[in-house]
Amino acid sequence: MKPVSGTALDGLIEAVRTRVPDTGIVHRTDETLDSDPGSYLLLLRLRSPLLVRIGKRESRLPSGLYVYSGSAKGPGGLKARLGRHLRGNGQLRWHIDQITAHADDRAGLAFRSLTECDLTARLLECSSFCVPVPGFGSSDCSTCRSHLIRFQASPED
């Protein structure tokens, strides 16, 4: 399926699809999601820099494109968790909520056979993806340096 045309995320969607070929539909709202458990990639655009906090540590995220990998195993599955992130509202509960509250554009990709760590590893195999803040969204993960990844299409970004 083709990316959502005409959004700032189009290039990011294509870059993700080259690393994760089994990517399906691009979700813009929770209406197209089901309640099954699974993992997801949340694609985000920040138009301006953002200061984020992990515990007592603050980090500045430059404007740009980001991917967050997460899992949705609780009640409501992907529809509940990814849908919440796509709406970008609600209480600040997880690290990613700091970004979704300020993101200018959001899209999601759902997976049933890959874990959030599998997805993170596949993206980080490509030099266009890097870890902007170690530990972000991965405080309960002993495998990944971060579940937040920055995308830079070219050195000028």
Rank of each mutant, 00 (worst) to 15 (best):
76 G>E: 06
63 S>E: 13
105 D>Y: 11
49 P>I: 04
46 L>R: 03
99 I>M: 00
86 L>G: 05
72 A>N: 06
58 E>L: 11
69 S>A: 15
88 G>M: 01
127 S>R: 15
49 P>S: 14
41 L>Y: 09
132 P>D: 04
83 G>K: 01
63 S>M: 05
54 I>Y: 08
100 T>I: 03
134 P>L: 09
115 T>I: 09
119 L>M: 02
111 F>Q: 04
109 L>E: 00
132 P>N: 07
48 S>N: 12
97 D>W: 04
134 P>T: 14
110 A>E: 05
96 I>W: 00
114 L>I: 07
45 R>G: 00
116 E>W: 11
112 R>S: 13
81 R>Y: 00
64 G>Y: 02
85 H>N: 04
92 L>E: 14
80 A>Y: 11
120 T>V: 15
131 V>H: 01
41 L>T: 13
97 D>I: 00
70 G>H: 03
127 S>T: 13
40 Y>T: 04
52 V>E: 07
75 P>N: 10
59 S>H: 15
71 S>M: 08
60 R>G: 03
77 G>M: 08
118 D>C: 06
47 R>N: 14
126 C>F: 10
53 R>L: 07
120 T>Q: 13
107 A>W: 01
68 Y>L: 06
121 A>R: 15
44 L>Y: 03
62 P>Q: 10
42 L>T: 01
85 H>K: 04
47 R>C: 05
133 V>S: 03
101 A>P: 03
89 N>Y: 11
135 G>M: 14
60 R>M: 11
92 L>H: 14
45 R>Q: 13
99 I>F: 00
130 C>L: 13
76 G>Q: 06
92 L>R: 15
51 L>H: 11
